[in-house]
Design a protein around this nucleic acid. Structure first.
Lengths: 252, 252
DNA sequence: CGATTAATTGATCGTATTCAACTGTGGTGG
DNA sequence: CCACCACAGTTGAATACGATCAATTAATCG
């Protein structure tokens, strides 16, 4: 149990992780979907371990992920890596505050991926012609930011076991496996090193903590498949709260 | 030096922290400023240590901070706290993906603050009438998200000294102190416990690391004033890179 | 099937935590 | 003005969680 400031003045209520509300793919209203179609430049199929773009590069496209997993990360001067989040089908990739500037992070496929490609210029044009889409983007960005904040809490204030538990429940939820039926599995394309770089731990310690979770019968992770054996206990460990029922509605 | 995976395949270039591009208050174009004025419900003066809102509350307002410091944080079930970021003058506060849902974080003033208040309903109306403002919000949100990602890297992949160094340089930059002249000071209203809860450390360890930095002549922090004695070395420690020159331009 | 990458385990070390006590500071009221 | 209190900062000692170093086993892929 690490760094838990138990301040006495404990008036502030805890309302645990609302990742649930971040999980589902929010389809655009039909009217807007048609509009968006006009601006896309087609679809790409990329192999696993392929970089969409790298930190520091000027990059011309924006993407929507149709199938597969993409990981977004940043690199440190000493060779370290911090994974920021995993993009799942439906996610929007490579949007950043300054569309002209070099990318502030890298994106690499973990599996084979199908992506819908929008040239940046098209996006800009689209936003000029259909300004109401700006708000959609604000909504998506705010949702991604909330997930990032959950990650911050996870890394900053939880021990290794709890961090693992959180990552697993988060991905399980985002994959759309809300079923109460226990013992479900999801594909899990990342390596233990990836997990380590997501959670601010080392590869070795991730491995040991995984064994620990396995021995306690909470999960099983092998051959790139994650099986949740005891969701309730895992969510409890993670400080993950399903109560926060989500209205997945967009802003307006 | 903690958790630095030195993977051999070191092809990915490192492009260090572009916080600089996140620092300055991006004023709206004049045309839009006039529009926004119509929807604000006036200004408030709040004392220090006052909560704007708490996690889990339904909250009716959106704010722009005019003067003072506000801290945004999340609470854990075990009593822990993770500070997400410090809002400085010009920052937008309390916008989240689901405007109807309970707040997903808390906001508390660190100093006396002047805020501009927008009732949520007004914001929604404003966005309906002037959809082009949605993109402005997307821009602001994306910028805040980028800062959050820097925090993630900071907590996930750096040791205590580096984390402190980063926080100091970040705030120094965001306060608008880009002057090359060495030895400048900024107000620093947070306690050592706040710093600890920002950086994923404990109060005690922050204290020791501060002493360390002081003894090395990099900073001085006392009486809520931070003095940067050796910016270059501090930025180096933090992995902070000024090269990334910023175009502070909005999207369109 | 051999080569490369990923997972696993052991031993040791160190950074940061924890527990605990003490010092300084600022504010309040007698 | 000083006594008192609450709170922030400081320091010490012991501990622990996770890192580091190193070597071995298991998967995966051409």
């Amino acid at each position: 149990m690490t760094n838990r400031s138990k301040r006495s003045e404990q008036t502030v209520p805890c309302h645990a992780c609302p990742v649930r509300k971040l999980t589902r793919f929010q389809p655009l209203p039909e009217s807007q979907q048609a509009v968006v179609q006009q601006y896309r430049a087609g679809q790409t199929l990329l192999p696993a371990k392929h970089h969409l773009y790298r930190e520091g590069e000027l990059h011309g496209n924006i993407y929507t992920l149709f199938s597969g997993w993409v990981m977004l990360y940043k690199t440190l001067s000493n060779g370290g890596r911090q994974i920021l989040r995993y993009a799942l089908p439906g996610d929007f990739i490579s949007f950043q505050a300054d569309l002209q500037a070099p990318m502030n992070h890298s994106a690499q496929t973990l599996t084979e991926c199908t992506l819908c490609v929008f040239p940046r210029q098209n996006l800009i044009q689209m936003l000029q012609t259909h300004p109401e889409l700006g708000l959609q983007i604000a909504w998506i960005t705010a949702r991604d930011m909330t997930l990032g904040q959950e990650y911050l809490v996870n890394i900053g204030r939880k021990n290794a076991k709890e961090r693992l538990a959180f990552l697993f429940t988060e991905l399980f939820q985002r994959m759309g496996m809300h079923d109460p039926k226990i013992g479900n599995s999801i594909p899990f394309p990342m390596t233990q090193e990836d997990i380590a770089d997501t959670l601010g731990l080392t590869l070795v310690h991730v491995n040991r903590t995984l064994r620990n979770l396995r021995e306690e019968g909470l999960i099983n992770l092998s051959h790139h498949t994650l099986t949740i054996l005891d969701y309730a206990q895992l969510a409890e460990l993670a400080g993950f709260n399903n109560d926060t029922l989500a209205t997945d509605q967009p802003l307006l």
